[in-house]
Amino acid sequence: MLRPGGDIDMSRASTIRKAVAEVMKVRPAKLIMDLGSVEYMDSSGIATLIEALQHAMRNKMKFVLVGVGPRVRSAFEITKLIGMFTVCATVEDATKI
């Protein structure tokens, strides 16, 4: 599971991208990303998650988002991309998928 915090913007997206790539190297059956501590996400952050999702799909892995707060959800909604992701309310819910 990955649990980034703070703001995911242009200055931090590459750090998150590297962290995701590192976890995906071991090809887990499922990667849960807990966004509960993320206060802000811009399109760089969204692009990073799209890349992670596409990588997961290519490798038959599950990629699940949890703890998507209102501001992060708004960013996803305005780009009409929220429907692409599997989103759960809690980590516990995500582990059951």
Partner: peptide, 16 residues
Amino acid sequence: LDDVKPGGLGVHIIKE
């Protein structure tokens, strides 16, 4: 937006 790919979302967000 039907072309699902990372990047290029900024102008869409601004206009919306």
